[in-house]
Design a binder for these strands. Structure first.
Length: 575
RNA sequence: CGGGGUGUAGCGCAGCCUGGUAGCGCAACUGCUUUGGGAGCAGUGGGUCGGGAGUUCGAAUCUCUCCACCCCGACCA
């Protein structure tokens, strides 16, 4: 590709709306343009990258024997009413009407359409298992789109769905897909990790997420330093602590603590070790029969894990904290002075809390705390649960090693859906036994457009993007120095360009006749991995200059046999 | 949806407080010079000052209202 014939429009300044590196760089090098909030145009440059990612995904899925299809972006409301998601999906579902007033939505996902397709096409267990996929533009009316295509409303997603006669078959395909995903992400050249995940509102049994590792990632993932255990920290279980509480060494006493309304204040003003404090959080109860609220206890230095809390049957979903007024109303004290002693609410304690002794907590009376509290003696031992968020250094839940933390960007998610959708939509096949069986389903997503942003987030420096070779928009940049004046340079560059094209190299030939600095900066900004410079200097010595994007020094390639040498460089970096 | 903020040329911004008919840098266009890390000189084009209403002789500037966008939070692949 000649640069004179390719739409390149880079800017030196960063648009004010972009916060994170990937968004800023995508705008600066002109890969995307915003049309309106959360909706972007992909330019020729951006599209080249998007297609690279897409093709890797497609190629690996095809190799695994899954079949590509293309479903409609606009879907009738009837299908969504069958699964009750027309109401349940919430405001993220973009609803539209046609001229006759019929209801549709712009598809945020395709379980309904796919299940409808399969229930009409598949009749017999002999046709199972079967897996279809598509690469489609989806729309979710995000509350707050941000970070460019990282969290946009319209986005490109690969979604696959598998259908099975029973759970064993689903499980088999699930793990097969896990391996396919591993191959896909390996091929993109990105550093990634798969983790156990919360299956969330979609429901189902088993679920894994695939994360591109990047310090700016929104998700925190925990992994063992000795085994391959890894999970989203939302889900990371805490191993049950061993032992019994120490025998009481102190009497319980009521202390005036006007300076302490937070754990930090309690620790600093009254010289209490933070491990000897208990935090009391009041949330709405699931069933208000017993009480309107439930108290959750965690050690003072711990963080409540909202995902774990929400899964408790006693706790309302979604998790809702009681307001200050509600707390005062039901307990008679403010949120800074709460504790388990004399609390008129059901209590659930984190499992380590019941092993504490001689601890401090609020007295449910303003500006007062109890010191030296001991379970059983001073207050009934509460129900326990795993409530806190794991931190670095915790024992790995599989018993091997301790947990490390990393940040990641979720780019893939696989679920075992089971029969949730097939049952609601009556997707059945005849089994070997001659009876109808509800099909078991798996669903598997990859955020194609998000991968592009995640790749940049993981691979950039002060000069711009540093694409991993497999998803770079071009493999090689060919830069002639002052070709307008130097016929030698132009002829050498022209002929090299021809030979590289012939050899199948994706080369961007910068024939724009710009000053060298502009060319260097542009090519580095858009992140082309390999760079060849043709200049008088080099030609005098019979060489071309070569530099990899992340190198700090130039290398040389002899003019003689240059194409072969370049091909070797490209192959070398690809691995 | 709650809280905060911003809308002035393609991008980044000043002007607004104190009303007098719009400016700077970058980008773009023309010409000449220049060519190994975002060149220099000279010139040119480009603005319903987010929309509407009001106050005023006069509004980018003051008032009201609507809209869009951004940030924080709750929510989420």
């Amino acid at each position: 590709m000649k640069a004179s014939n390719f739409h390149l429009f880079t800017t030196r300044e960063t648009p004010a709306e972009a916060e994170i590196a990937s968004h800023q760089l995508m705008l600066r090098c002109g890969m995307i343009r915003k049309l309106t909030s959360g909706i972007y145009t992909w330019t020729p440059l951006g599209l080249r990258v998007l297609r690279k990612v897409e093709n890797i995904v497609r190629d690996e899925l095809n190799k695994a024997g899954y079949q590509e299809m293309l479903m409609p972006a606009v879907q009738p409301a009837e299908l969504w009413k069958e699964t009750e998601r027309w109401e349940k999906f919430g405001a993220q579902l973009l609803k539209i009407q046609d001229r006759a007033g019929r209801d549709y939505c712009f598809g945020p996902t395709h379980e309904e359409v796919m299940t409808d397709f399969v229930r009409n096409e598949i009749r017999s267990y002999k046709q199972l298992p079967i897996t279809f996929y598509q690469i489609q533009t989806k729309f979710r009316d995000e509350i707050r789109p941000r970070f460019g295509v990282m969290r946009s409303r319209e986005f490109l997603m690969k979604d696959a769905y598998s259908f099975h006669i029973d759970h064993e078959s689903l499980d088999e395909t699930y793990w097969e897909m896990y391996d396919v995903y591993t191959r896909i992400f390996s091929r993109t050249g990105l550093r990634f990790r798969s983790v156990e995940a919360d299956s969330g509102a979609i429901g189902g049994h088993k679920s894994h997420e695939f994360h591109v590792l990047a310090d700016s990632g929104e998700d925190q993932i925990a992994f063992s330093d000795e085994s391959d255990y890894a999970s989203n920290v939302e889900l990371t279980a805490i191993a049950m602590p061993e032992g019994d509480p120490a025998a009481p060494a102190q009497d319980m006493r009521l202390v005036d603590t006007p300076q302490a309304h937070t754990i930090d204040e309690l620790v600093s003003a009254y010289d209490v070790p933070v491990e000897k404090t208990v935090k009391t959080l009041i949330v709405h109860a699931a069933d208000e029969a017993e009480a309107k609220f439930v108290a959750l206890l965690v050690r003072g230095d711990r963080t409540l894990n909202p995902v774990k809390a929400e899964k408790l049957e006693q706790v309302a979903s979604p998790l809702t904290f009681a307001s200050d007024a509600e707390i005062r109303d039901s307990i008679g004290a403010g949120p800074g002075s709460l504790g388990p002693v004399g609390l008129p609410l059901p209590v659930i304690a984190d499992q380590e809390v019941v092993l504490m002794s001689d601890f401090t907590a609020g007295a449910n009376s303003d500006d007062k705390h109890y010191f030296g509290i001991n379970w059983k003696r001073d207050v009934e031992v509460p129900v326990t649960a795993d409530l806190r968020t794991a931190v670095e250094g915790d024992d790995s839940p599989d018993g091997k090693g301790v947990l490390q933390m990393a940040r990641g960007i979720e780019v893939g998610h696989i679920f075992q859906l089971g029969t949730a959708y097939s049952k609601a939509m009556n997707a059945v096949v005849l089994g070997e036994d001659g009876r109808s069986h509800v099909m078991h389903m798996g669903c598997y997503g990859i955020g194609v457009s998000r991968i592009v942003a995640a790749a940049i987030e993981q691979n950039n420096d002060e000069r711009g993007i540093c694409w991993p070779e497999p998803i770079a928009p071009f493999q090689l940049a060919l830069l002639p120095m002052n070709a307008k004046k130097s016929h030698r340079v132009r002829e050498a560059a022209d002929s090299l360009y021809g030979e590289l094209l012939e050899a199948g190299v994706e080369v961007l030939y910068d024939d724009r006749n710009l000053r060298p600095g502009v060319m260097f900066n542009d090519m580095e900004l858009i992140g082309i991995p390999h760079r060849i410079v043709v200049g008088e200097r080099g030609l005098d010595n019979g060489v071309l200059e070569y530099r990899y994007r992340t190198d700090s020094e130039n290398g040389e390639i002899p003019l003689d046999g240059a194409v072969q040498a370049i091909l070797k460089k490209l192959a070398g970096a690809t691995g």
